[in-house]
Simulated assay, not measured.
Amino acid sequence: MEVLVTGGTGYIGSHTVVELLNKGHKVLIADNLSNSSKTVINRIEEITENQVTPYFIDLVNKEDLDQVFKQNKIDAVIHFAGYKAVGESVEKPLKYYKNNLESTLNLCEVMENNGVYNLIFSSSATVYGKPDSFPIKESFSTKAYNPYGRSKLMIEEILTDLSSSNDKWNISLLRYFNPVGAHKSGKIGEDPNGIPNNLMPYITQVAVGKLKELKIFGDNYNTIDGTGVRDYIHVVDLAKGHLKAIEKIDANNGMEIYNLGTGHGYSVKQVIDAFEKASGKQIKYSIVDRRPGDISTSYADSSKAFNQLGWKAEKDIHDMCRDAWNWQEMNPNGYE
């Protein structure tokens, strides 16, 4: 298939592009590089020994996006592009709503105008809000507690309406839990701008000496050790989930929602312990106040993805920590 990957030089996008190329798909990337680097293209091609076709455009510019479709015979789109920092979304909600919604609306309009109806959307477990029970199933009610999460939920609702309006559309909504790790080569990984928003890159930057210590937001949750518990999934496992979704979406199955997680939660302190064992580095940390809106526990029921897509996560917390450290140690300043 010929697949357009929006945000394809980003963290999850780049790993998905690698898996697509390794399976023989032709890949186009559309990315404005607002949170990534052109260097990623070279790294992807080194890993796969295949070429990728990049378009350094912004999806907000509909004319540029339309030209990508006019110049190629695209079969399906995987849509990663969008702002993703929860904290920033609270400070700048209009920025998040404008970019994430407008870019998706433009993409859907351009796809429809060019007769392309296969779409995989990068959603998030944040759309579940604060569930009453665990593991989290796709059938649970949804409610987001920050502008980032609400933008994901709004897009899900837009795509649901779109699918209902025209049975040509085949849409998969993939709700990720907590992606971590990196490609085993160490050539691509998570390279956040500024202070990391997610746990693993924060830990790795402390380990490599870029940051002084890790701040743990609360140690008085009702969990095994008082720190928050999350379902961490290796980014390569997550990328392979997109391959399975591509295979399924090509069979014209309307709209489906899938959780992508391991089904097992780890606390912050358990992740620190696992990382210290994998890296041989000691991670200094301090306890600070909880963040508003954080929940104590979150982990997935991914049985639907296993039953319908034949997908399940294969890598464990040791693999995640080892590969994250390998990436950071090989690239102490990220892609710079």
Rank of each mutant, 00 (worst) to 15 (best):
K244A: 15
P54E: 08
I246K: 03
I203N: 09
V18A: 07
N326H: 14
A239N: 09
S302P: 15
M1G: 12
I224C: 10
K26A: 11
I287G: 13
E102S: 00
N114Q: 01
G218Y: 12
V18L: 07
E247Q: 08
K244R: 14
N35T: 15
T104F: 01
K143L: 06
Y11I: 08
M1A: 12
K184D: 15
Y145I: 02
A207Q: 00
Y176K: 13
S302D: 11
G265R: 02
D64C: 04
I272N: 04
L214S: 04
D64S: 11
D191A: 14
K212C: 06
N42Y: 14
A30P: 15
H318N: 15
N197L: 09
E45P: 08
A125G: 15
T6H: 04
V268C: 00
P147T: 05
A324W: 12
R322L: 12
I317S: 11
R150F: 01
K248P: 00
I188H: 03
A76P: 08
Y258V: 01
A245R: 05
V52R: 04
L199T: 13
L162Y: 01
K277W: 10
A274R: 12
I295N: 11
K73A: 07
E276N: 11
G7Y: 07
G115V: 01
T39F: 10
L309I: 14
I249S: 05
I171C: 01
L28R: 09
A274Y: 09
R291C: 01
Y128K: 02
K95S: 07
F217N: 08
Q67S: 08
K269M: 13
K130F: 09
A81Q: 10
F134M: 04
Q328A: 15
L107E: 05
Y96F: 15
K62S: 13
Y232R: 05
F177K: 03
V17E: 09
S286W: 07
E2M: 12
H15P: 10
I257Y: 05
W169Y: 05
L199N: 11
I47T: 14
K315N: 14
Q67R: 07
N146C: 02
T204Y: 02
D219E: 15
G194Y: 06
P131F: 06
L159M: 02
L174A: 10
I155W: 00
Q328G: 07
